[in-house]
Write a protein that binds this DNA or RNA. Sequence first.
DNA 1: AATACATTCAACCGCGTCTAC
DNA 2: TGTAGACGCGGTTGAATGTAT
Length: 281
Amino acid sequence: MGHHSCCNHQKVKRGLWSPDEDEKLIQYITTHGYSCWSEVPEKAGLQRCGKSCRLRWINYLRPDIRRGRFSLEEENLIISLHSVVGNRWALIASHLPGRTDNEIKNYWNSWIKKKISRKSSTAMAAVAANAELTQPGCSSNQLNLVNQEVMTKAPIQETLFSSQSPFFMFDSNLEDGLTRLAALPPHRLPPPSPPPSTFTAPSMYSSYLPALEDMEAMVPIEDQACTGMEEDEELGQDLSERIESHPCPSFLVWDQPIETQMCGEASSNAAAMASSFPSPL
DNA sequence: AATACATTCAACCGCGTCTAC
DNA sequence: TGTAGACGCGGTTGAATGTAT
């Protein structure tokens, strides 16, 4: 196996990243940004290739990354989205704030796939129905949004999925077009955008933001994602049952400030990093 | 306690696409 | 228009960790 084309002529380190390397990368990115990944390793003093640095940053070191187990809403959303767009992990990830395509892919390949295959065809039927019928509830809401995103090629993450946006919700009244969505190549999708300083909802998306109602029923997603393991029983609930009985309620994500989002040790630095993090060029 | 097997997840690889020249 | 370099994505690997025997 060869090395990446970007580092053929370099002596690059491979394998797991050390804390020291992480520190160097964080230090460099927070100071200079990442306008050109191929330059990052040299300027940051790392013996890695640019691709490796990019991957490490995106999948692990980014300050807005959300770690910990997936919530029920996230899981249902992954299932719904996957049933329509297939293995378009980046697209799916763009609708789960703080989650990476790699994480979702891994999650799918272990937990969800296992559960689905283990269980009866009822589960599969439910998933298929989810995709084909675009029934009311989360699926149609979410997927209408996905579709609209693709059709308009607008940077919708900027308005809905940034850590600055307190909520994102979807309306079910939009037209379909899922087949067109599935047919579009990944590169036609808008790239992720850096968090905006304020939440803005362009008029073209205003229909996705219904009035806030039933606030008592809203559950901060972080409460589910980062709590301990005491909810195993709930998570262990059969997937097919969940799909059938709870395809996905009107979706809501309550995005917490970064300092409370982070569950790992790096949380103390997260807020500072986020505030000082320069936008990519 | 030791071993085998299963699972998780960080990281790598190759390829397609974009962009600058 | 063609080409090379860079980026981004999905598929895959393999080390670390957990669990069963």
